[in-house]
Amino acid sequence: MTTHAGENSDALRPEDPRELGPYRLLSRLGRGGMGTVFLGQDPGGRRVAVKVINRELAGETAFRDRFRREVNAARQVRRFCTAPVIDAELDADPLYVVTEYIEGPSLERAVAERGPLPGSDLEGLAVGVATALAAIHGAGIVHRDLKPANVLLSATGPRVIDFGIARALDAADGPTRTGQLVGTPNYLPPELLRGEPVTPASDVFSWGCVVAYAGTARAPFAGNTVPEIFYKVAHEPPKLDGLDPSLSELVGAALDKDPRKRPSVQELLARLVGHTDPNPALIAETVQASWHVPGAPPVPPPPPAAPAPPVATGPARTPAGEP
């Protein structure tokens, strides 16, 4: 389920709730396999994204248990380069989770409308998403559904959303649940297709796919049908033609079919920023300070300071009453 924050929203429908807990709902932001995302407002006037779970899912005890575990884990994720979880209803109906509202287009939309990200923007995107993964993995969870639609380009840098929640849809028989694919075919790691455990290395693979898309405007494993895409993910090398040479080798390493051969997120950051022991919190601050929203007009330089008034240079005057 993706939050399309900053993109076109739709008016509430007659069947939609107007309030959930302390949150007033303002409009619809999107809908996915897990539920509907609304733009909401808290009592203090802050805007939030409220993700309401479909009732047919919420009625399943196993799903509710998984959802509770995943949301509680997601609440431990540090805030840098992510859309943090603010609140959640995990017991009463309807189930929902509240996250920070991120103003800005998704990477998917930005690239579709404006084409590949240029050099420094692409590097900032690669660093920002890797930093978000460091925060997510630091909380002991795996994103599992990292894709361009789940990366929002905010004024303070790329922000990753919906981390960990896809796990609640998992079934014991692999990457589908009641016939529904859990994840997006072009960005799924091959080990998931093989029925192997999903680990942080799986997110590294998806990171490589996202950066390749951002830099070329196409997925590295593209096809006309889901079986064709799956075959390419599992057996063929990625198509990275046109990707910035400074990133091509690292992205290729992240897309290794064997998760044991992929770099870790810390290794991604070390190679991206040129530091052997990168600090994700400090990197997040640097990304925020240097980020320029792709496609936005450059910030004009400040106007020159007014010249200082001239300083009198005549002979010093003696105050009255003094010799």
Rank of each mutant, 00 (worst) to 15 (best):
V160A: 05
Y213R: 02
A112I: 02
T131F: 04
D203A: 07
L193A: 12
E196Q: 15
Y213F: 15
G179Y: 11
P185G: 11
E191Y: 08
E191T: 12
E108A: 15
L117C: 09
L117E: 01
V127Y: 00
P118F: 11
L193D: 12
H137D: 09
G128V: 09
L152F: 08
E196K: 13
L153Y: 06
P190G: 12
D121K: 07
S206F: 03
I141M: 15
R177N: 15
V182H: 01
G124P: 00
L125Y: 01
T178W: 14
L152S: 06
V211F: 03
F205R: 01
P185H: 08
L181G: 09
D121Q: 15
I141N: 01
T156F: 12
G208V: 09
I161H: 03
I136H: 00
P189N: 11
A171N: 10
I165T: 13
T178C: 13
G174C: 12
L192T: 13
G208Q: 03
T176N: 10
G164W: 01
I141F: 01
V198Y: 13
L193Q: 10
R194W: 09
Y187N: 08
T131W: 02
A132K: 01
A171P: 02
T199K: 00
A166Q: 04
A212V: 07
Y213G: 06
L181A: 10
D173I: 09
V127C: 02
D203T: 12
L125V: 12
D170T: 13
D162S: 06
Q180M: 14
Q180S: 14
L192C: 10
A112V: 04
T184Y: 05
W207K: 01
A217R: 00
L146I: 07
L181C: 11
A112M: 13
A134I: 05
A201Q: 14
T156L: 13
Q180N: 14
G115L: 09
T178K: 15
L133S: 03
S202C: 07
F163C: 04
A219T: 06
R114E: 15
L181W: 09
L133T: 08
P185Y: 08
P190T: 13
G138F: 06
I136A: 02
A130D: 08
L181Q: 12
S206D: 08
I141E: 01
S120H: 14
S202M: 07
G215F: 02
L153M: 10
G179N: 11
A112T: 13
G128M: 06
L146D: 05
D121S: 15
V111L: 04
V210Q: 03
T131C: 12
A168T: 12
R144P: 01
P200Y: 09
V182W: 01
D121R: 13
V151E: 07
G183K: 02
T216S: 07
G215W: 00
A134T: 04
S154M: 04
N150W: 03
V211S: 04
S120A: 14
D145A: 03
